[in-house]
Structures are given as structure tokens and as C-alpha cells.
């Protein structure tokens, strides 16, 4: 079964606005949830011919650091002996974004969140495409969202990773059975994780090898963003995309076929 990428978008925190159609439902949400929602709205809007999410639709969220700032906001209240906010606490749980997305778009199928310092987007992508190929789902959103925290930024600086600060953002892909449509399909994917020193997850020396080019990817979202850009370039029916991302903590292979 061919799994088609029917939409692929990325947003960063500077370009994100609260989606009009779900502004009221997101009024209490934190940035982690808002970014995931904004990217997902854009992905669903991009795909005009796609089915509306339903009980055969699923959701797969990958994240390296989760709602880290919200977690610290809760911790801050606790260490200050202040009343813990129930809303803040519920948003600090790592599947908070998935829960909001499921409600916003009435995604009634499986909703899974994966937390992984190495390959969060590709973990979610593998799970989503696996769910479609096994027949569990006909459609799914695959989302990576990262918001980081000031503490993490300072830790990066302190440990010598003083290069460009990581920018919060989100990537969202919509996957569906190909049917009789044409577009980019996932032909094959693989993830190879290997043990690495903790500092490597802050340094993030990832390199995307594609078509003879090497694209450096120095933050947890970069590789997913770079492949999203490739997918959104003018489609060429002759082309296939063989992407390989290498890093000290392993590698990812992704073979896309235009059909």
C-alpha cells in the first residue's frame, strides 16, 4: 500500500498566528499546543481533496523536549509553595497537544505521542505510516512540535553549544492511502538509533544527505523542515527522493517516490 504525503507544512514561532477557526478552543493553550494546532490547521487546509478527519483518522506526535517550559512553570509554582494550576499541569503532560488536536479536528482514531531526543519526527512518521499500511487507519496527521525553554537554552550555552539558538516551531504532514492520486509517497523508511553522549543531543550535528547535497541540520526540527521543503518543491514525476540523515546518535533513511 502506498502512503501518500497529501500535505506537508512547517511553521516557526515568529510566523504563527492563532488559527481563527479554533481560537476560542485554544485560548488557554500554551505555545506547545498552539504551534502544533497551527501547523495542523495549515496541513489540513492545504489538502483540499482530502477526507475530513473521522474515526479512521489518527494522530502521531513526536517531540524531543515536549512542553518543557510549561513543565517548569508548574515546577516554579510548586517550589514557591504557590497553588498549582490544574490547567497548567494538564498542559505539561506530554500528550497535551495530541489531546487538543484530536478534539479540534475530531480525530477519533489512535492518538499517540512519542518522546525521543534523536528522531522525534521520524518516530511519529514511522508509527503513522505503519498504522496506515496495516489497515488500522486511512489517514493520519504526523506532527513534530518543539518549544524548548530558557533553562535548556542556558544549558546549551553553558555546555559550549553557543551556536544559533533553537527556534520553536512545528512540522505537520498529512498521510493518506494513495488511491488514484499522484504525489509523493513513502516508499521506505528506517530509523537506526545508537548510544551517544548526552552533549550530542544539545549539539545536534545532523546532516541530511539528498541528491548529492548535504544539508546541515543543527536543531531538533531542522531535518523535518528540510524534508518538508523538498516535498513542497515543484513535483517532478521522474523524481524520487532518497534522504539519509546522519548524526552521532544514529541515522534515518527515507525514500520517497513520486507516483
Amino acid at each position: 500500500m502506498n502512503i501518500m504525503i497529501t500535505a506537508a507544512v512547517h511553521l516557526d514561532e515568529s510566523s504563527v498566528g492563532l488559527p481563527q477557526q479554533c481560537a476560542s478552543q485554544l485560548r488557554r493553550a500554551d505555545d506547545f499546543i498552539k504551534l502544533a494546532a497551527a501547523a495542523s490547521v495549515e496541513a489540513l487546509d492545504m489538502c483540499s481533496g482530502c477526507q475530513e478527519p473521522n474515526e479512521e483518522s489518527g494522530l502521531f506526535v513526536g517531540t524531543a523536549f515536549g512542553p518543557m517550559q510549561t513543565n517548569f512553570d508548574v515546577l516554579g509554582l510548586i517550589v514557591d509553595n504557590e497553588q498549582t494550576s490544574p490547567t497548567l499541569f494538564s498542559h505539561s503532560v506530554f500528550n497535551s497537544a495530541a489531546g487538543y488536536l484530536a478534539r479540534l479536528f475530531t480525530i477519533q482514531g489512535s492518538s499517540q505521542t512519542f518522546t525521543d531526543f534523536s528522531w522525534p519526527f521520524f518516530q511519529a512518521l514511522a508509527a503513522g505510516s505503519g498504522a496506515i499500511s496495516s489497515g488500522r487507519l486511512k489517514q493520519c496527521l504526523v506532527v513534530q512540535v518543539e518549544t524548548y525553554s530558557d533553562l535548556l537554552a542556558d544549558a546549551r550555552q553553558q555546555t559550549g553549544q553557543s551556536a544559533k539558538p533553537w527556534q520553536a516551531g512545528a512540522v505537520a504532514w498529512l498521510l493518506e492511502n494513495q488511491g488514484d492520486r499522484t504525489g509523493w509517497c513513502i516508499d521506505d523508511s528506517s530509523i537506526d538509533s545508537s548510544p551517544a553522549a548526552a552533549a550530542e543531543y544539545l549539539h545536534r550535528a545532523e546532516y541530511l544527505h539528498v541528491g548529492g547535497s548535504v544539508i546541515p541540520c543543527f536543531d531538533p526540527l531542522s531535518a523535518a523542515i528540510a524534508i518538508t521543503d523538498l516535498v513542497n518543491q515543484k513535483n517532478d514525476p521522474e523524481k524520487s527522493l532518497h534522504c539519509e540523515i546522519t548524526a552521532p546518535y544514529g541515522s534515518v533513511g527515507l525514500k520517497l517516490q513520486h507516483s
Binding site: F94, F114, S193
Partner: peptide
């Protein structure tokens, strides 16, 4: 995975 020194897929599910 590191403790067992094995190869294969890994994942951490955070669905509360």
C-alpha cells in the same frame, strides 16, 4: 537498549 547492547527499533510512548 544501551544496557542490553542490542539493535532494533526503540520508542518511548508518552500518552499519559
Amino acid at each position: 537498549q544501551a544496557v542490553l547492547n542490542v539493535q532494533g527499533p526503540t520508542a518511548v510512548v508518552t500518552n499519559a
